[in-house]
Nucleic acid binder design. Structure first.
Length: 574
DNA sequence: GCCGTTTTCGGCCCGACTGTTTTCAGTCG
């Protein structure tokens, strides 16, 4: 799958073109197309030129580049740009406060073409005498350099939600606050979050901003004006606060939730309809901006004026949601309240922290009707995986437990390893005794694409395997996804009726949202699972559901919305 | 670069903050 590589190449080309002072709209087109290729599940190397050109934002020029890239692994114009523009200038763009204009200027005047030379020049006080640069700018560049050298860290959504709850909890009590909501990529449920965005309406904006920049979690103030402030949190993450009038809250919430691409598309639509939209409201193009807006108090008003259904934040990625909203065809997204159980959790029998009884009690307390207790199989020694004898013992234990309760059922499940050759870690007789089998890869991650793909398909062909766990195997910030052919695997999944898991562990969130969308389109059933290793991790269902929502999934697409009885029937009827 | 029930040419989202300036460019989201 070359899509991500090609998207990366286009992003780099956009930056190089910017350094080359090329047409800004051309640069925007490259970035927009890069986004489109990133979200595409069909492999570009299997697409014809005509198919490529049907991707929104991709015309003949970029389609030909995609074609050139999949045939030759390179793009000539990209190589030309690389030859002409020093590589170091690209890394200089990562320094906060430096954009293409300033980087180019530094290169032309002082021949600075690397982070090292930039640091030396700033420390030597050589920048302050340049026109447009002064002492303050020099200091800021040095600060920006520290961050750029470390590289930009993004938090997982799970971590971001915790940090957000702390900040909101602190701000909540402030005098004069009317509404206070998280915005940005966190509200869209993106798998990782770069910084925290908070929106607030208040009768006393000064007070909120002052309290915010002096909060205990605020390490340093990056900017502070009348309507917005940014601070760096103790963990180095940036947190932005915007304060608006309550009449503009909906417009501002829409605006600061993004995504940027969604907002650009929305504004283009507004212009066609004779309106203009900003963070204060929706106006007629002909009207004075000081006039009261036609809409702005709620998001629903804005979307309605533009002839659209309200679009849930998770869908605002410019992946067809505006077209669907126009036709009134948005999905009715699954909600956490629809979930009645989880197939995948662990106990202290293998590597979990809580006993079977504790896990079951906690699941019941969440309002669930059933829980799949799916300890590891024997191959995973480091997790104390269960031998066949121990697993049979556990099956007996679960049967006894279920006799005591009618209203709550534990499924005897297991997360069985898919061994390197695609065979399963338990024999068929044992798997037959289990209610539900999740097959996962936990070893030999570096197999070539073809072998890994065959390995997983072989597991799906086993009649006892119900579901594939964390298909891509990626660990956010730690490990790349294994090389697999998604098209072939989805096809096998459809053919064998094997479900695919959306794993809600914060560093997994696996399937990827775009892959889950493709799977849904093929009629593949999805299980949203926690992979909980302790009772508190059962709350990771919220992350799994968020991924499902970003993938446009509805209640009917997800196995976990079945009642205990339906799950039993489904397991027996396979 | 892309795109088109106003267009195949001429558009292409919009505003806040900073640091540098005497009214604004660059950056950022």
């Amino acid at each position: 799958m070359l899509n991500r590589q090609f998207a990366g190449l286009l992003y780099e080309m956009a930056n190089l073109l910017e350094l080359d002072d090329d047409n800004p709209f051309r640069i925007r087109a490259y970035k927009k197309a890069a986004m489109a290729f990133e979200g595409l599940t069909k492999d570009i190397s299997t697409m014809t030129l005509e198919e490529l050109m049907r991707i929104p934002g991709v015309g003949r020029g970029l389609a030909e580049k995609a074609d050139e890239f999949s045939r030759t692994g390179r793009v000539k114009e990209h190589q030309d740009l690389r030859r002409r523009i020093p590589q170091g200038l690209l890394s200089m763009l990562n320094v906060s406060g430096l954009g293409a204009k300033r980087v180019r200027f530094l290169y032309e005047t002082l021949k600075i073409d690397s982070l090292g030379k930039l640091k030396a020049a700033a420390e030597g006080g050589k920048l302050r005498s340049l026109p447009g640069f002064a002492e303050k700018m020099e200091t800021n560049i040095l600060k920006g350099l520290e961050v750029a050298v470390q590289g930009v860290e993004r938090m997982t959504l799970g971590e971001a939600r915790l940090r957000m709850a702390e900040v909101l909890g602190f701000l909540k009590g402030t005098d004069g606050i009317i509404r206070l909501e998280p915005a940005g990529s966190l509200r869209r449920g993106k798998e990782t979050v770069g910084d925290l965005d908070i929106l607030c309406s208040s009768r006393n904006p000064d007070k909120v901003i002052t309290r915010f920049i002096h909060a205990p979690f605020s390490k340093r103030t990056l900017a502070a004006g009348e309507t917005k402030a940014s601070v760096e949190l103790m963990n180095g993450i940036q947190c932005d606060l915007r304060v608006v009038e309550d009449d503009s809250f909906g417009a501002a919430l829409q605006y600061f939730t993004g995504s940027k691409e969604h907002n650009v598309a929305l504004r283009e639509r507004a212009l066609k309809l004779g309106y203009t939209v900003n963070e204060y409201g929706l106006y007629r193009t002909s009207d004075d901006k000081k006039k009261k807006p036609l809409a702005g108090k709620t998001e629903e008003e804005i979307y309605k004026k533009l002839g659209l259904q309200w679009i849930p934040p998770e869908l605002r990625e410019q992946r067809g949601e505006i077209e669907a909203a126009e036709k009134g065809k948005l999905p009715k997204l699954i909600e956490e309240a629809d979930i009645r159980g989880c197939f995948h959790s662990h106990t202290s029998e293998s590597d979990g922290r809580n006993t079977l009884e504790e896990m079951a009690a906690a699941a019941r307390k969440k309002g669930w009707e059933w829980l799949g207790s799916a300890d590891h199989s024997q191959a995973l020694k480091m997790t104390n995986g269960l031998s066949p004898d121990r697993m049979r013992e556990k099956i007996g234990k679960i049967k006894a437990l279920n006799k005591k309760s009618k209203s709550f059922q534990v499924l005897c499940s297991s997360e069985v390893d898919i061994l390197a050759d695609g065979s399963m870690d338990y024999d068929d007789d044992l798997m037959k005794e289990l209610d539900f089998v999740i097959a996962s890869v936990h070893s030999s991650f570096k197999q070539p694409e073809e072998k890994m793909t065959e390995r997983i398909i072989r597991a799906m062909d086993n009649p006892h395997v119900d579901c594939i766990g964390h298909l891509s195997g990626r660990l956010l910030g730690q490990r790349e996804a294994y090389a697999i052919d998604y098209e072939k695997i989805f096809e096998a999944s459809r053919r064998t009726g094997t479900a695919l898991e959306i794993n809600g562990q914060p560093d997994r969130q696996d399937l990827y949202d775009v892959h889950a969308t493709t799977a849904k389109g093929m009629g593949i059933r999805i299980a949203t699972n926690t992979d909980a290793h302790s009772i508190d991790q059962l709350d990771h269902m919220s992350l799994a559901v968020t991924v499902a929502r970003r993938a446009w999934l509805e209640k009917k697409d997800v196995l976990n919305t079945m009642s205990a009885r339906e799950v039993r029937e489904w397991c027996d009827g396979e």
